[in-house]
């Protein structure tokens, strides 16, 4: 089970939950599962970057998630 940590911006759509365990093998699957569990999240996960055990991925739909990973959903950042 991956442990997903929500930022304060996202936890307003999870009823205040800041952490949740989700079974998912890939990022796309994880995001769909989150939207099913927390329908208010729908539309707020479209452009998130996903950190898996400290490594941050953009466009990570097919990125695999190792068991017991620590997941953080972040606003995307690139730079100048």
């Amino acid at each position: 089970m991956a442990i997903v940590h929500f930022s304060s911006n996202l936890s307003q759509y999870t009823g205040g939950l800041e952490t949740v365990s989700i079974e998912a093998s890939r990022v796309g699957e994880l995001l769909r599962a989150l939207e099913q569990r927390f329908p208010d999240l729908s539309g707020h996960l479209e452009s998130v970057a996903v950190a898996i055990d400290g490594v941050i991925y953009n466009d990570a739909t097919y990125q695999s998630i190792p068991p017991d990973s620590e997941i953080h959903l972040l606003p995307p950042v690139s730079g100048g």
Binding site: H5, A51, D53, G54, E70, H72, L74
Partner: peptide, 11 residues
């Protein structure tokens, strides 16, 4: 091993 203030653990 520390966590960044935005969440993820630092490598």
């Amino acid at each position: 091993g520390d966590h960044a203030p935005y969440g993820p653990v630092y490598g």
